[in-house]
Each structure stands twice: as structure tokens, then as C-alpha cells.
Amino acid sequence: MYTDSSNVRIGCLATNMKSIFKSKPKTPAEIVCRTRDLLVFLNTNSSSTTFREAKREEKLLELSQHIRELKRILYGSTESEPVPEACAQLTKEFFKKNTQLLRLLIIFIPKLNLRACKDVTQVVANLQRQQVQSRLIASDYLDANKDLIDVLISGYEEEDSVLALAYGSMLRECIRHQSIARYVLESKHHMKKFFGFMNLPNFEIASDVSSTFKELMTRHKSTVAEFLTKNHDWFFIEYNSKLLENPNYITRRQAVTLLGEVLCDRTNSAVMMRYVSSMDNLRIIMNLLRETSSKNIQLEAFRVFSLFVVNPNMPSDVLGILVVNSNKLVRLFGGFNTDKEDKQFDADKAHILEIIAALEPKDHY
């Protein structure tokens, strides 16, 4: 008959045996390696007739668990903060040349469930900011694999909004790298695609495209200024016709707001002077000023319009339009106010009105 002490010894022995045979936690390198192996296996066998559905589901579940573990290492959990050394090790393994894990994930993401898809976008986003020995090695990897950016941009064409938004989210993080933003900007094909994507009937996707486009046009100021200088004519023709003259209110509002932000940036001073020297551009902005049903559009249009008025080298055709419409402009701006008291806006408006009132046509008018 066993005694109580015997029971205790047996219980302790069972506990020790469990701890002995308990699997050790995988290292970041091992998790990356296993995630890659699963993706390779699934990509290779997904169309095979001998690949049983039960086996496929088992591998997909394991893949989802490993992706979740990648996310846990990078973001931490409710119990612990992320460990910098583990994050660095994971990042280094993730972007090894022979691993190609980012490529495999992008290829396979349409086959993931919603939760895993969101986890992938968060993992990719975080990795763009992780440094290894003071270097953003994600940027180095993308520089050598720019075709992945082509895939991400084309992702906006997906009918599945969840998938399109996942591609858009990853793309926005990738263009945080200046070299990648330059790659996109220097592709006329890609830039024209953005104008089309912002007019997609799916509001959620079109809004996401607008967010990506704004990031592209505002983050790397010197690169954007260089792009606009080289591509001024076709770009603003597209911008005016596809965005500022778009029948959709939200598209027009976002477009005129972004235009004001870009033109008022000091880095784009030469671009701004060229833009406000165009009679066609002025007419479009004046049309936006007349949108009495939308104070927001009017106020943002006024910001851009002011740049035409204060131009010290105003072309004669621009001056002519302002002179001919001066009385209408004075009446319009007379009732032009913000919802809240804004002394700076009131001062700017008074200054613009003063300049308009003093405008005189050149000799040939």
C-alpha cells in the first residue's frame, strides 16, 4: 500500500518528467525557418491532387500559428514587452537572401484566413522599422527585390477588399524607405495607376489608395520635389482632371487639401511658382472656390488661390483673369469665414482682398 509520501514522490517524478520532455521554445531563427518551410510546402503542394484537404488544413493552421508567433516577438504581448535582441535576430533571418520569406508571404497571402492576413500585414509593417546594426535592412532587401513593390501596387486591383487593403497597408510601410518611394515615383506607369485607383467604386479601397498616395507625395520631400520638377506637366494634368475636377466630393476635398500641403512646402517652391503661373490651374481652383455647398473645399481652395494672388511674377493671362473677376472675388470673400474664430485666416483674407482690389490690367488688356 502506498503512503502519502510515496504519492508525493510519484507526483514530483511525473512533474519532472514533463519538464524534461517539454519542447524548448523556438528561437526567432527557427520560427522564421519553419514559416518559410511551411510556405514552400503549401505553395508546392496546394494544387496537387494527392494533397489531402485535412493535411492542407493542418499545415495552414501551423503556418498561422507561426505567423502569430512572429508578430508576438515583434510586438510583445500583454505579459511582456518585445525583446530588442530577439527582434533583431528575427529581422536578420527574415531578410536573408536565401530565405525570401517576404516574397513567399506576399505570394501566399490570398490563401490565408482573415486573422492570418492581418497578422502578416502587421509583421511586414513592423519589420520595415527594425534596425540591425543601425541599418534598416528591409530597405536593402526591397532595393534588390523591387518587383515585390509592383505586386503590392497591383494588389489594389483585387476585388476582395480585405486583400486589397492588406496590400495597401504593406505598400505604405515599404514607401517609408526613400529608395522605394523614388522607385514608385519614377514609374509613370505606377503613378498613373494611382489616379485610376483613387476613382475605384469601392470607397474603402479608394480611401486607402488616397492615404498611400498622400504618404508618397509628402514623406520624402526632396525626392518628391525632384519628381514634380521632372514630371510637372503630365502629373498636374492628371491631378487636375482625375482629382480636382472629380465629381466625387470626398475625392475633390482630399485632392485640394493635399495640393495645398504640397505647394506650400518650401522644398517645392519652384514647383509652386510653376503651378501658379498657369491660367488653366487658376480656373480650376476658382471653380472650387465657388463650391458654396462645401466650406471645407472652399477654405482649402482659398489656401491654394492665395498663392496665385501673391505671386510676384504673375503672368499676364493669370492677372487678366483676376482683374476681370475681381469684383466677384471681393464679394465672395466678403462672406468667407471659418467656423471658429481664426485671426490668422482673417488677416490672410484681408491681405488677399487688398491685393485683388489693387490689381490693374497690363497694357494689352
Results as ranks from 00 to 15, higher is better:
residue 86 A to M: 09
residue 281 N to S: 14
residue 3 T to K: 08
residue 139 S to R: 09
residue 186 E to Y: 12
residue 300 E to C: 14
residue 175 I to K: 05
residue 38 L to R: 06
residue 209 V to Y: 01
residue 186 E to V: 00
residue 317 D to I: 03
residue 17 M to R: 06
residue 282 L to C: 10
residue 23 S to P: 13
residue 14 A to F: 08
residue 115 R to D: 10
residue 295 K to A: 15
residue 210 S to I: 07
residue 88 A to T: 12
residue 49 T to N: 15
residue 279 M to K: 15
residue 13 L to N: 06
residue 29 A to W: 03
residue 140 D to W: 08
residue 120 V to L: 04
residue 108 F to Y: 05
residue 169 S to A: 10
residue 321 I to F: 04
residue 202 N to D: 13
residue 332 L to C: 11
residue 144 A to E: 14
residue 222 S to V: 12
residue 361 P to K: 07
residue 263 L to R: 01
residue 51 F to Q: 05
residue 28 P to D: 07
residue 255 A to C: 13
residue 312 P to R: 07
residue 325 N to A: 06
residue 225 A to P: 10
residue 280 D to R: 12
residue 271 V to H: 04
residue 94 F to Q: 01
residue 107 I to T: 12
residue 119 D to T: 04
residue 127 L to A: 04
residue 171 L to I: 00
residue 49 T to H: 12
residue 177 H to S: 01
residue 206 A to Q: 03
residue 221 K to N: 10
residue 193 K to L: 11
residue 264 C to A: 03
residue 58 E to S: 09
residue 96 K to Q: 15
residue 304 V to R: 07
residue 99 T to S: 12
residue 251 T to V: 03
residue 298 Q to C: 15
residue 259 L to N: 02
residue 225 A to T: 11
residue 57 E to R: 15
residue 74 L to S: 03
residue 184 V to D: 01
residue 188 K to N: 11
residue 357 A to P: 00
residue 334 G to A: 00
residue 147 D to T: 07
residue 84 P to F: 13
residue 365 Y to D: 15
residue 80 S to L: 08
residue 149 I to S: 06
residue 237 I to G: 02
residue 325 N to K: 10
residue 271 V to A: 06
residue 118 K to S: 11
residue 355 I to L: 15
residue 39 L to P: 05
residue 143 D to Q: 10
residue 23 S to A: 13
residue 360 E to S: 13
residue 109 I to L: 13
residue 345 F to L: 00
residue 211 S to G: 03
residue 21 F to C: 08
residue 104 L to F: 08
residue 15 T to E: 12
residue 122 Q to W: 00
residue 60 L to G: 10
residue 28 P to A: 05
residue 69 E to K: 01
residue 249 Y to K: 09
residue 318 V to Q: 00
residue 64 S to N: 03
residue 18 K to C: 08
residue 93 E to F: 01
residue 41 F to R: 14
residue 186 E to H: 07
residue 342 D to M: 05
residue 69 E to Q: 09
residue 67 I to H: 04
residue 241 S to V: 14
residue 2 Y to C: 05
residue 72 R to V: 06
residue 205 I to N: 02
residue 250 I to G: 04
residue 19 S to I: 08
residue 225 A to N: 04
residue 315 P to Q: 08
residue 273 M to E: 09
residue 364 H to Y: 08
residue 288 L to C: 02
residue 45 N to E: 07
residue 298 Q to E: 11
residue 113 N to A: 14
residue 5 S to K: 05
residue 186 E to S: 09
residue 214 K to S: 12
residue 164 A to K: 04
residue 115 R to L: 11
residue 294 S to Y: 01
residue 138 A to Q: 00
residue 8 V to N: 09
residue 8 V to K: 02
residue 65 Q to G: 03
residue 43 N to F: 10
residue 11 G to A: 14
residue 339 D to P: 06
